[in-house]
Structures are given as C-alpha cells and as structure tokens.
Design a binder for these strands. Structure first.
Lengths: 200, 200, 200, 200
DNA sequence: AATGAATGAGGCTTCATTCAT
DNA sequence: TATGAATGAAGCCTCATTCAT
C-alpha cells in the first residue's frame, strides 16, 4: 500500500539480502526469503531488480563499502607500523563483531570470483588501494618504497583473511580474541624486519 | 557400455565433484553437473552414492587426506624453524598446483561449517594436529612449549589460508609465486622472534 | 491465463484428486496426473498446496464432509428402525451416485491408516458419532441402551462398506441397485431381533 | 550360487511379495524390496518375471487361492444356516488372524480392479461360486432356490468385507472379536427370515 | 507502484527395467 | 543361471522469473 520510491525499495532489498545471506548462506538466499525479509513480495523484487544477480551485485558493493569504511576509519596514527597494526586489528575486530558478516563477506567473495572474476579482483584491488593510501599518509616523510607499501597491504589482507577463516570455522570468540594478538605479533615481527631497516 | 566397478566410479565422481565445486561453488555443484563431468548420468551417481551428501562426505575426506599427505610428506628437516617453513611452503605449493583444489577446499570448509559444524572443526583440528606432530618431531630435544607449537601451527594455517584466498581471487600464478616468498618471510620473522629467544 | 483465486483452484485440485485417486489408486495419484486432471501444472499445485500430503488432507476432509452430509441430511423419521434404514440407504445411494467417490473413499481410508493411523480412526469415529446422534434423536423416548446404538451404527457402517466393495468390483449399477434392497433387508431382520424386543 | 530352478524361484518371489505387500502396502512393494526379501537381486526377479505386473498377477492368484482354501475348509455341517454361519466366521477369523493378510488382500483387490477390472471380478465370482457350492452341499435335500443361495453368498461376502474394513481401520483385535459376534448375529437374523420361511 | 497467480527449468531421489559379463 | 552395472522416466518439490490486474 505505502508507495515507496524505487530507490528506497532497493536499499531495503540490499539490507534484507545481507541479513539473509548472513543467516542462510549464499545458496539459502532465495528471492522469496529476501523479499520476505524486506517485507515485500517476490514480484516487487523483480520490479526493482531485473534479476537476482543484479541485486547481488549491489549487495556486493554494499559489503565492499562497509569494508572500506573500516579501513578509512583507521585514522593515521603515530607512524607507519602503528597504523598498519591498527588497520589489521580494525579489520579483525569487524570480523569478530559479527560472524554473520564474516560469513557473508567470504561467501560473496567466492560468488564474485565465480560469476565475474573481474569484480572480485576489483574489490580486492580497491581494498588494497585504500589501505595503501592510509599507509602512505601514515608514512609521512619516511622514505618507504611503493613496493614496501604493496607488500604491507598484502600481508595485512592475508593475515586478516586467514584469521577470518579460522574464526569462522571454530566460531570460538574467546579463542579468536586471543589469536588476534598472535596475528598482530606476526605482523609486528615482519614489519620490524621489513620496514625498520629501510627507515633506519 | 564400459562396465566400471563402483569403487572406481566413486573416485571418478569425487574428482568430478572437486572440479564442479571449484567452478560452480557448493550450491552450483548439482548432481546433474557432477554426473556430466564424470561422464555418467544422474542415476549412476545414485547407484554409487545413496545421496548427494554421501558423495560430498567422500569429497571432503578426499580433500582432507590430500592436505594430510602434504603435511606428512614434509619430513622433519634440520630444526623447528626450517620444518615450519617447509610445511607452509608445502601447503602453498599444493594450492598453487591446482586452483580447483584450492577453491574446492575453501568451499567445502564453508559447507562443512554450515552442514556439520563439527566436521569442519574436525578436519581443521586434524590438520593442525598433524602439523604439531611433525613440528614436535623436528623440535627434537629443544625445549619448545606445547603452547608455542600450537601457535606455530595456527600461524602456518592462517598464512596459508590467507595466501589461498588471494591466489584464488586473482588467479595470477606468477604473482602468487612471488607472494609465497613474502608469506614465508613473514613466518620467518615471527619465528625468529617467537622461537629463537626461547631456545637461546 | 485465466487468473483464478487460490481458493477455487484448491477445490479444483481436490476434485481432480478424487478422480485420479479413484482411477489410479493412491499410489498412482501423482502430482503430475492430478495437475493434469485439474488443467494446471505441477508448479501451480505446489503454489496452492505446500505438499502433496497437504492436498490429500484436504481431499480427506472433503470426503469426510460429504459422508457427514449424507448422514445429517437423513432427518429423523418415524422411529429408530426407520431412521436406521434410511441412513444405510442414504450412504449406499451416495456410493451408487459416484463410483469415483466410492473408490476414492476406500483408498483414502487405506491411506489414512498407513500414514496417520489416528486420522483414519478419527473419520470413522466421526461418521459413527454422527450416526449415533441421529439415531438417538430418532429413538426419542424409547429406552434404547447406548450399547444398542453403538451396535446399530456399527452394523450400518459394516453393511455399507461391504456393499461398496462389491459395487466397486463389479461396477454394475443395476446389480448394485438390486443388492441395496438385500442389504436393507439384512439390516431390517437384525433390527427386528435386536431392537424390537427391547422396546416391546 | 545355488542353482535354483525357475519354478522354485518364482514361488519364492510370490511369497516374498506377499510379505512385502503386507508390511509396506502395494506402493511400498518395490522390486528391490521384494528381491531382497526373496534373497535374490533385482535382475533375477526380471529373469523370472517379465515385469512387476506379471509377478503381481501371480501374487493375486496366490492370495485368491488362500481365500478359497478357507472357504473349502469349512466342511458342510449340520444344515444350511449353520454352514453359512461357519463360512462367515471362518473368513472373519482368517482376517483376524493377520491384519497384514487382510491389508494385502484389500490392496490387491483394489489393484486388480484398477489394472484389470476383469480379474477382480473373476476372483470375486470364483469366491462366490465356491461358497455357493459349499452351501448347496449343506442344503442337502432342502428346496433352496438358486437365487436364495446367491443372496446368501452375497450377504456373507458383504458382511465379511465390511468387517474387514473396520478391523483394519481400528486395528483393535479385542473390539473386532466382539464385532464378529454381532456380524454373525446379523447373518443369523436375516437367514432366519430369508431361509426358514422357505424351508418351512 | 504493487501484487496475487502462473510457469518452465531444474533440484534430489527412486523406480522398473535392461545390458554385459 | 546369476548378478553387478547402467539408464530413462518419473517421483515430489523449489527456484527465479513473468503475466495480468
């Protein structure tokens, strides 16, 4: 009954889809369930989106933006190593915050790779780019080579992803919290060896 | 026409399933597609396996065994750190060997978590356990605490998983090969800080 | 093309199911055949009913209601014996009216017994109960024991069922019509011996 | 391994089928189950019988013969009415003996009607014929019209069938045992009115 | 803008049956 | 005679999508 503009409807569907993907997985995220969650009917969903895939593309972008948000919120602190540490910790904390979000993210990455290899790459690139920018800002006048920044971003992403997989599999928040410290320690050790000499 | 014993047919289906899971995801791994890939028909699949889930259980075991194989093949070399490095490299090389295997593995972990939380954990535990055993053998008479071994195994797994995700997303073998070295360097740095002092 | 509300579609399916059950048996009453008979497709059937069993439950209720209708339409006449006779004749006439209905009824009783023992009993009980009520009303002030009413209801049901089986097997309406008189005569003889002495 | 002649195998299958039909219903009587019960495999079944329907035809004949046996075992006693009573009671006792047999019988009757109307009729006719013969023998020199014998046989069959349905539905052996007496009483009353005057 | 009704394709599974040995 | 292997048809059900109002 309430006449809601299409734009609004779309974001409703996106949010609904995130919820459903998180709780039911990519395969369980059917149009029916998404529409239900969005308090609409299936026909309405197809009035707003030509196909389920189109909706998922938007969902993907939404999740990517959320990820970017976490990175950007990490204002450049102290120096390069400290910022890197905060970045990694920020992402892991976001994962720890919601297992559903973590699951949904991994599912979507997998989905993007299968459907459109490019899209997955684009998001990964984007995320790494954002990280690099933040890191560069933190480096300030320190002479850090672009290659070093690339590597740091890559290592942060790798550690965060690995952490996410384990946390998802075990679902043990206490253990994961302890593991966060280990992962950060790993990064620290490497940074000390990789960056310190360069800046010395 | 060719009358093939079920035992072999089963492994045909397992291999086919790995391929299909890798390319279409767990949800897209339908009986139809798997049968087609195995050059059989759907009824044949159900002649060999009572249900799709039964087949997937075997696929799961296949992947787990393969993973175990890699770890066990890493005979204890030199000392603890060297063995750890070889373990990590061995797993990553296995991933690099076959993108399908990598993708299927990740999908199956996700699937196992959703379907049978315990099973996913069991495989992870098993893998970590095997690693710990190998590492302990490598440690020899060095006084390494069990906690340290736990951490080392966890870090190896985390780094390997993170590496896998990136390699899968980009699908760029050359880049991944280069990244292997970075990941190994990360492990080395951390090991130097974590283990060396203790043994010193 | 013609957009028919689900409510009506449902009764279409019910009628179709009765026909198909009668001609193909419970096992032969597949969703395909029922949908075809109802001039719809299988998906439509599942749009109206969540499952085949749900549809069958409605078919069951339909048959039970029809049976109840016949009994209730037999307004209490004259006295007990006359009413009993009219009840029996009413049920047999309903059977004679439609062989499909008769066959479907018998199949459904069998099905209900296998699937939900209680449901089969419930309908039988319900039918007998309705009969008893009508009979009691007809008895008026006559001192008829509840046991006697139970027996009368049982005998009516037994005779009607036996009649139905024969009529179904032969499918000879003329013969069945003649047999109706025999069956009624059987009831009359027994009633005379069972009830008359008590009321005398 | 053991080389069993086809004839023997066939009767094995028939007996197995009876068991399976009794315990699983007509729909549940699959070739697999029947073969398993007969300790053979499905291919063997089709070596002995061209089709499942062929086997069922033999099963049908087997059950019919069993029914005939009951009737024939009722040696003519005393007079017509006594024999009729014993016939009815004999059949009911056979039903009471095994609910499975009762169920299988009714299922097969239904099946025969649907598949080959003629076959159902033939068996019914045969059963009635056997009854008539026995009754005629019991009547001895009494001047009982053929029409009367027909009617008596029909009433016995009708009462027995009606009894069977109720017994199957409720599955209450105690109640059914009590109902047997009622049913016999019904027959007695009617016989007294139908035959006695004629013989008087 | 909104929504019940409709549908073809495909999901997994079981069936009766046949083939090849 | 005997039996593992193979298969097409059909079982029920759910899906994404479209049509008609």
């Amino acid at each position: 009954m309430p006449r809601i503009p299409v734009a609004q409807r779309r974001s409703d569907f996106i949010e609904a889809a995130v919820e459903v993907i998180a709780s039911h997985g990519i395969d369980g995220a059917t149009t029916r369930r998404i529409a239900e969650q969005a308090k609409a009917n299936v026909a309405m969903l197809h009035y707003c989106y030509d196909s389920k895939e189109d909706l998922f593309a938007d969902v993907f972008e939404f999740v990517a933006a959320s990820y970017r948000g976490v990175v950007e919120d990490t204002a450049p602190h102290a120096g390069l190593t400290d910022t890197a540490r905060r970045l990694l910790r920020g992402v892991m904390e976001r994962y720890l915050e919601s297992a559903s979000f973590t699951a949904a993210t991994l599912e979507l990455i997998s989905w993007a790779r299968r459907q459109h290899g490019d899209r997955g790459i684009a998001v990964y690139d984007q995320a790494l780019d954002t990280m690099r920018t933040v890191l560069r800002g933190a480096a300030g006048d320190d002479p850090v080579s672009p290659e070093a920044l690339d590597e740091i971003a890559y290592v942060i992403a790798t550690l965060a992803d690995g952490f996410a997989l384990s946390w998802l599999t075990y679902g043990d928040r206490a253990a994961a919290t302890a593991q966060m410290d280990i992962v950060v320690a790993v990064l620290d050790s490497w940074l000390a060896a990789r960056v310190a000499p360069a800046t010395a």
